[in-house]
């Protein structure tokens, strides 16, 4: 019994090629069943995400499996063919986030789980791929719990969200205001919204732009000369204006902070030139992070994740060996999956 994987990813193929071979979520099961029913094929799972298209197959010999997959896909020159241990290792790496564009991201695990379940429901899997994928999910869990590969924020937006959580705890009572209407500020506000931030206010010199962004975020537009009126209820203030000088100074913020009682204020300065005077950080209860500080946090987290790669690979390698031993162990001959037999 052998296992193969034919795949292309963001590392090996441009988006034009990936989208050509992409399989819609609703068709994953059907395609897997059709592939599994091809001559020389026993079982199949199709994984298709925005960054990768991969066909996993199990059957009597690797050459027949690759030939069957090639016949199904047509031109496979862009695909990387992996056999036996190499394909097992690849799957374990994929589900662990080691092969992801953002190292250590966890979304891929859910996507692979869904692809496997769909194939299983379509009757395209049997003992070998069932065992392989279940082992893969265990590997992913171990990697996540025993290493720091998923730790920390690796983008400016997620770094801001992590900091907000470290200042306020839950964000569901937090009100956010954006000064300006920059793209990074919008992304950061969306990330805060996803974590539960309650209300978003947008204030911009051009009121129409404030209205447009507020509309996109489901928030409220404020005239630029009126933003201080909303200050008392704010928890997070994002600066993203194109002003050539600091918009928020210590002298301006000091009296406003005195009116807020004892609530902390998280200031995120995404503008260049900066919107916040650095001395603002010296005020009691004010925590100021500019774009460099946030990027530094993201870079440091990425560095930690890269350092964890060695530990991840050691862990994955152990599981690859164990799975190889299981695959090679003699066992009684079982009938082929009756449902895929039917497809033939």
């Amino acid at each position: 019994m052998d296992i193969v994987c034919l795949g292309l990813s963001h590392k090996t193929a441009p988006v034009e090629l990936r989208e050509k071979f992409a399989v819609a979520d609703g068709h994953l099961g059907e395609v897997a069943a059709r592939v599994a029913g091809s001559p020389g094929m026993g079982e199949a799972v199709v994984v298709s995400t925005c960054n990768r298209v991969e066909y996993y197959a199990a059957g009597e010999d690797a050459a027949s499996l690759v030939a069957a997959l090639s016949a199904h896909l047509g031109d496979v020159s862009a695909f990387r063919a992996m056999r036996g241990e190499e394909s097992v290792r690849h799957l374990f790496r994929v589900v662990s986030g080691v092969e992801s564009m953002v190292l250590g991201e966890t979304e891929i695990l859910g996507q692979v789980k869904k692809a496997y379940q769909t194939a299983q429901q379509a009757g395209a899997t049997s003992r070998h791929l069932n065992k392989l994928f279940q082992r893969a999910f265990n590997v992913a869990k171990e990697v996540r719990t025993q290493t720091s590969i998923t730790r920390g924020a690796v983008s400016v937006g997620s770094a801001a969200v992590e900091l907000a959580a470290k200042i306020f705890g839950k964000l569901d009572h937090c009100n956010v205001m954006i000064l300006g209407a920059g793209e990074t500020a919008e992304m950061t506000a969306r990330a805060l919204q996803l974590r539960g931030a309650r209300a978003i206010f947008v204030s911009n010199r051009t009121y129409e732009r404030a209205q447009a962004l507020a509309g996109a975020l489901g928030g409220k537009a404020i005239h630029f000369d009126e933003w201080e009126g909303e200050f008392e209820g704010l928890d997070i203030l994002i600066g993203s204006t194109g002003a050539p000088h600091a918009v928020v100074t210590q002298a301006r913020l000091g009296p406003l902070m005195a009116r807020r009682a004892d609530r902390p204020l998280f200031c995120i300065d995404l503008a260049v030139p900066r919107d916040f005077e650095p001395a603002v950080n010296d005020l009691d209860g004010v925590y100021l992070y500019d774009i460099d500080a946030l990027q530094g946090i993201a870079d440091a987290s990425l560095q930690v994740r890269r350092q964890e790669l060695v530990r991840c690979e050691e862990l994955i390698e152990r599981h690859v060996r164990e799975f190889g031993e299981w695959l090679a162990a003699p066992r009684p001959v079982m009938p082929m999956n009756p449902r895929t037999e039917g497809v033939k």
């Binding site: 959580a165 470290k166 200042i167 306020f168 609530r263 925590y287």
Partner: peptide, 17 residues
Amino acid sequence: LKRHRLNSFYENLPPIA
């Protein structure tokens, strides 16, 4: 938080609020 020193102490301390 003020000095942007986000070490393991920072990670394990509860939110300041």
